[in-house]
């Protein structure tokens, strides 16, 4: 895979230092994304999904985090190697991010209009007036009356705040949108609205998206390709259909198994035994081995490379095809 893709992440390894300990957050991640498509990063809390997303924008906290190795190429340009100035140009205009909690994502002491206009002014040489006008347009676009640009975030409900955040993110028409669990903090009905709107805008502007979520339902709705992240590694990668209908990795299977089935009466939900590993003390060998019901002797000692089980479908479990044995 050496041709230029829209987004190409290779061998990304990121570590945090805290209190003298090294936290291995991301360990050798490889991901691809085509233009106009949506990649879903799925995994439990703490798997490293947000870290990967933030590292694309290079907004990880400075002294504590370190990109040990790897590359993140957007249209051939490596974000990791880019200068701070160049990154500032990219942030907000070529790549934008929306975060999980809308309640705290907006600056409480600035009007929403100012916050949206800010990103416009920063990236496009526009006068004050036209930036505000564009902000108004964006609000209308996300279904909020344009007059509300003068209002403050506390005057909006959670769902509307998230829409403002989306308006802000898309104001400069970015090529890539990073959405970190955009609907996790919202209730289900609003969730649907927001997702719908994201989809609409994405189609309208042909924006590529990296969608982080732990909700497989959302993945089913919105994603084109899916990557299963666990302990900072990609355990399985493929398109939606491949992952949903033919999951290969024991972890993936476990995830699907945990989804309650409407038609089957079950007393308890299936869960995966055990807990995710301590990132300061990752297991030698396969990171999932301690919890894997199919684990074999060499799983605990050898790290396996991801291999292709079918075209475009990668899995890092060496025994994926022979699990039943």
């Amino acid at each position: 895979m050496t041709e230029q893709r829209f987004l190409k992440i290779r061998d990304l390894t990121i570590q945090y230092t805290s209190g003298g300990q090294i936290i291995k957050a991301v360990n050798g991640v490889n991901l691809d994304l085509d233009e106009g498509k949506t990649l879903a990063l799925v995994g439990e809390t703490g798997a490293g999904k947000t870290t990967i997303a933030k590292s694309i924008l290079q907004i990880l906290p400075h002294p504590q985090s370190k990109v040990v190795s790897g590359s993140i190429e957007l249209n051939g340009e490596d974000m990791i190697k880019a200068s701070e100035e160049r990154l500032r140009q990219i942030r907000g205009s070529e790549i934008a991010m929306i975060f999980q909690d809308p309640m705290t994502s907006l600056n409480p002491v600035m009007t929403v209009g100012d916050q949206i206009a800010e990103v416009i002014e920063h990236h496009q040489d526009s006068t004050d007036k036209s930036a505000i006008d564009r902000a108004r347009e964006m609000l209308e676009l996300v279904g909020i009356p344009g007059d509300r640009i003068k209002e403050y975030p506390h005057q909006f409900s959670g769902g509307m705040k998230q829409r403002v955040v989306i308006a802000m993110a898309l104001a400069c028409n970015p090529k890539l949108l990073l959405a970190d669990e955009p609907t996790s903090a919202l209730d289900v009905t609003i969730q649907a609205q927001v997702l719908e709107m994201i989809a609409k805008l994405r189609d309208q502007f042909n924006t590529s998206m990296v969608l982080i979520t732990h909700d497989l339902g959302i993945v089913a709705e919105a994603a084109d390709t899916v990557a299963i992240i666990y302990a900072g590694e990609v355990l399985e990668y493929g398109n939606k259909e491949q992952i949903f209908h033919r999951p290969q990795h024991p972890y993936t299977k476990g995830l699907f198994g945990a989804i309650p089935n409407l038609y089957v009466k079950a007393r308890r939900l299936h869960n995966i035994e055990g807990l995710p590993p301590d990132p300061t003390n990752l297991p030698v060998g396969c990171c999932f081995a301690p919890r894997c019901p199919y684990a074999r002797e060499d799983c605990k000692t050898t790290k396996f490379e991801a291999h292709e089980v079918e075209p475009g479908h990668l899995c890092s479990c060496a025994y994926a095809e022979h699990l039943e044995d």
């Binding site: 924008l57 907004i59 991010m97 600056n107 409480p108």
Partner: peptide, 9 residues
């Protein structure tokens, strides 16, 4: 919101 601000470039 500070992270948001940074992410706006």
């Amino acid at each position: 919101y500070i992270t948001t601000a940074r992410s706006k470039g």
